[in-house]
């Protein structure tokens, strides 16, 4: 039964990915200019022969449905086209950069979710000064553009205090030993992950607080108190799990935004992931690469969503189809 539900969600996800593929195909043809030229990353006067070659290579001289079929077929074989700027296949470029982005986005996701839930819990439970502080902090981070948080973080922690590195994922000087290498990456990860995570932490904290306050007057909470449970036990055993459900739903929705936000963070910190690659693609007008990145990140987000769906079903028995 549960398998059926997950398969259904999977079918849904595949549909989303397919729609993104079609979107990419359509947008390339709707955009002003010749698709072949866009694909070649050229603008204005360029070599006629070269453009003609590109047109033939991608079947752009064929009728539209054939073009779509070719495009779909290529994507299914993980062929996302060729970057004429970087002189390498797009899939290779993206594949190389993907792990760094996943590391960054997942750290930010976990960080924001844990901190957000914790802060929301503290605010709802202790009210008063704690509540006020959490509200101010979350309002502030919710109102700050993440690229600017990153820059301010660099000014404070890298330039003034010199605690954390401001650029890249590894030190320029080679580091010896596996542990030292991991520690080096983690050291570089702190600022970018915090930068990306704090905005979403604010969202989760606000939601968790509101959700807990909504759960508090419910009957089953009174039942638990009537059983003689202490206030602490009622919060931890009964309210927390129930209040977490809307946060989990929101987490699924925000997963995509966190991955999208990594463009900004990677640009600020020169983090060698696909966000940075996307920024370079924008600068160099390498639009075919940009669309490839869009497709790959969308797929990653669909997978993350699938994971949150599965977790939801595990937490809430009512979501399990009978």
């Amino acid at each position: 039964m549960r398998l059926r539900y997950i398969l259904r969600r999977l079918a849904n996800g595949v549909l989303v990915v397919l729609l993104v593929v079609v979107f990419n195909f359509v947008i390339l043809r709707l955009a002003p200019g010749d698709p072949a030229m866009i694909m070649a990353g050229e603008s204005g006067a360029s070599d006629e022969q070269f453009i003609a070659d590109v047109r033939r290579a991608y079947g752009l001289d064929q009728p539209m449905p054939t073009q779509l079929a070719t495009y779909l077929g290529n994507v299914l074989q993980f062929d996302l086209g060729f970057s004429y700027r970087q002189k390498r296949p797009n899939a290779e470029l993206i594949g190389e950069r993907l792990p760094a982005t996943l590391l960054l986005a997942l750290s930010a996701f976990v960080l924001s979710l844990t901190l957000g839930v914790l802060l929301g819990y503290l605010a709802a439970r202790y009210r008063g000064v704690v509540d006020w502080l959490v509200s101010v902090v979350s309002l502030a981070f919710y109102a700050t553009p993440i690229f600017w948080i990153g820059l301010m973080g660099i000014i404070v922690f890298s330039i003034q205090l010199e605690w954390l590195p401001a650029f890249g994922m590894r030190s320029i000087m080679p580091v010896r030993g596996e542990f030292a290498k991991i520690a080096d990456v983690l050291h570089h990860l702190v600022l970018p992950a915090l930068t990306l995570g704090l905005f979403y932490m604010a969202i989760f904290a606000r939601l968790m607080r509101a959700s807990l306050l909504e759960v508090r007057p419910l009957d089953f909470v009174a039942t638990a108190r009537a059983k003689g449970a202490t206030i602490g036990r009622v919060w931890r055993r009964h309210m927390l799990r129930n209040a977490f459900l809307p946060v989990l739903t929101m987490a699924g929705v925000q997963a995509g935004q966190i991955v999208g936000g990594s463009i900004l963070v990677e640009t600020v910190f020169a983090w060698p992931g696909i966000g940075r690659l996307a920024f370079e693609a924008v600068l160099q007008r390498d639009y075919n690469l940009l669309l490839g990145i869009f497709l790959v990140t969308s797929t990653a987000v669909v997978l993350i969503n699938l994971a949150t769906d599965v977790i939801y079903v595990l937490v809430d028995p009512r979501a399990r189809p009978a």
Binding site: G256, V259, G260, I263, V282, L290, S298, V302
Partner: peptide
């Protein structure tokens, strides 16, 4: 579902 900021960039 899709990363909306990336869509806006595209």
């Amino acid at each position: 579902t899709i990363p909306s900021f990336l869509l806006a960039v595209v």
